[in-house]
């Protein structure tokens, strides 16, 4: 049997909000160590890697490894039925054809069960090579969302240029152009407001706004986002999920023609 309980269903709601614009369906791999999801968007431009560790759950039991194909839109609809303060339990039997979501109100006077059919999926698991990145940037996730939103008005892509001076985000299009520069700021009053730039080599990479604007939907999960970049490899955009795990988005760059 598989059973995973989270006192804060809000975490799972936020996780679904963070993937529902990119993925229509995904395989949830459940094992003793936790829940993992690796899935590409339909255009195979980006990849989502989600990891929720078993020790981060309030209760976790997984007697045998399970691969459960789930509709993300259906799961998202079900999670919308949970109250903000509800506890959520995911439950499935061995060789399951469905998974049950159980929502319990804080004072235990309401118990709701939603059963969702699993789907058979041909899964294509990709190996992600170990990479040492030449630029690693940590910044407030709200700031990154804002930059992506603001620059998206000017073009379909954003160029990330990292140098000793800091990081410059720029976009240009028919209306004109815009750029936003950030410098390192480790003196911020609060740790979550810091901008930390670790640059080994300067670089310039261009990424599609469409995907960046999907990634920033993970902003409510974490105050900080980490961007890891090297020339000619996918961007890694990482958000920690409390003490339970992380969500990493990989995005293939746009290449000069």
């Amino acid at each position: 049997m598989f059973e995973a309980r989270l006192v804060q269903s809000a975490i799972l709601k936020k996780v679904l909000d963070a993937v529902k614009d990119l993925l229509t369906e995904a395989t949830f791999e459940c094992s003793d160590s936790g829940i993992q999801v690796q899935a590409m968007d339909s255009a195979h431009v980006s990849l989502v890697s989600l990891n929720l560790r078993s020790d981060g759950f309030d209760k976790y039991r997984c007697d045998r490894n399970l691969s459960m194909g789930m509709s993300i839109s259906c799961m998202s609809k079900i999670l919308r039925c949970a109250g903000a303060e509800d506890t959520v339990t995911l439950r499935a039997w061995d060789n399951p054809e469905s998974i049950t979501f159980i929502f319990e109100s804080p004072n235990k006077d309401k118990l709701a069960e939603y059963e969702m059919k699993l789907i058979n999926m041909d899964q294509e698991h990709l190996g992600i090579p170990e990479t040492s990145y030449s630029c690693v940037i940590k910044m407030p996730s709200g700031e990154f969302s804002r930059i992506c939103r603001d620059l998206s008005q000017f073009g379909e892509s954003i160029t990330f240029a990292c140098s000793k001076e800091g990081i410059k985000f720029s976009a240009s299009g028919d209306y004109g152009s815009a750029n936003i520069k950030l410098v390192q700021n480790t003196d911020a009053d609060k740790e979550e407001e810091a901008v930390v730039i670790d640059m080994q080599e300067p670089l310039k990479l261009t990424f599609a706004c469409r995907y960046l604007n999907c990634f920033v939907k993970a902003g409510p999960l974490c105050n900080q986002v980490q961007l890891s970049m090297s020339d000619d490899v996918p961007l890694v955009c990482e958000y920690k999920i409390g003490d339970i795990g992380h969500i990493k988005y990989y995005l293939a760059p746009k290449i000069d023609d």
Binding site: H44, L47, L126, G127, P234, Y250, A252, K254, I255, D257
Partner: peptide
């Protein structure tokens, strides 16, 4: 002009 690369050109099937 830029063209969009695929993630599958960087990561191989495991």
């Amino acid at each position: 002009k830029h063209s969009q690369a695929k993630i599958t050109s960087f990561f191989t099937k495991a």
